[in-house]
């Protein structure tokens, strides 16, 4: 297995009085796509937000590229090379598509070749480049959210349920985009409920329950093991095709 780019060791996160993460141990290998599965309320989104520093861990260690980032601020974590696509997408509706992309490109104006690559997967973004992002459809907003995360190369991309409520044709384009990102060496940690999408892209999988990672495996192995799917997730992947 490839070396770990991101490691969580015994991470606990409290939100107010609620103890959400209860000792998460997770390893994300460099250059692969790790899928985080689990029932609703298992702690998947909280895990991503904790990695991103949006919620501070009350205990435990988060190591990214050999550096403990648990105590860093969110901007510092982003600058360390982690991009985040939240479940709600976090699009700035009042800004145009171009302005959204400009903000995401911290080093300067977005690179033209990179934009062409993005437009190849998400052509709507070129068409609506000068339009306020608020007028985009849900699928197009998701394209923009992902495009914003990849407008500059990042070492790790955290993506929270990108296919939620999205048309199948757009999901196919997302699969192509994520596959291309993997080929260029980007590491991706993906929270996903769409098993077809997860199985198509995932290299490794971690299953969460009650604020802990309860199972780790290769995605292909879990996809082939209906008994494990039923035990861990309550359903088989085939039931979600």
């Amino acid at each position: 297995m490839a070396e770990a780019l991101l490691t969580l060791e015994g991470v606990h996160t409290h939100i107010g009085q609620y103890h959400i993460l209860q000792g998460v141990d997770l390893t994300v290998p460099r250059g692969g796509l790790t899928v985080l599965l689990g029932r609703n309320g298992a702690g998947k989104t909280t895990t991503l937000r904790t990695i991103m520093g949006l919620w501070k861990p009350s205990r435990g260690r988060v190591t990214f590229a050999g550096r403990d980032i648990a105590g860093l601020s969110t901007p510092d974590i982003a600058r360390a090379g982690i991009a985040y696509v939240p479940e709600a997408m976090g699009i700035f509706s009042d800004l145009t598509v171009a302005e959204n992309m400009t903000l995401a490109a911290r080093r300067g104006p977005p690179d033209k070749a990179r934009l062409d690559w993005i437009f190849a997967f998400f052509p709507a973004l070129r068409r609506f480049w000068s339009q306020p992002a608020g007028v985009l459809s849900g699928g197009q907003k998701q394209m923009l959210a992902i495009a914003r995360a990849v407008v500059e190369p990042r070492a790790l991309i955290l993506v929270d349920e990108p296919t939620k409520g999205i048309a199948p044709a757009i999901i196919d384009n997302m699969i192509g985009a994520f596959a291309e990102l993997k080929r260029e060496g980007t590491t991706i940690l993906l929270v996903e409920q769409n098993f077809r999408f997860a199985a198509a892209l995932g290299d490794t999988v971690a299953v969460m329950d009650d604020g802990r990672v309860v199972h780790r495996d290769r995605m292909a192995a879990l996809a082939a093991d209906e008994a494990a799917q039923t035990r861990l997730l309550g359903l088989t992947l085939d039931a979600h095709q």
């Binding site: 991103m52 949006l54 601020s73 969110t74 901007p75 982003a78 600058r79 985040y84 939240p86 976090g90 700035f92 903000l103 995401a104 911290r106 914003r148």
Partner: peptide, 8 residues
């Protein structure tokens, strides 16, 4: 929050 997540 999203502005911070973009690194600002």
């Amino acid at each position: 929050e999203m502005v911070e997540a973009l690194g600002y």
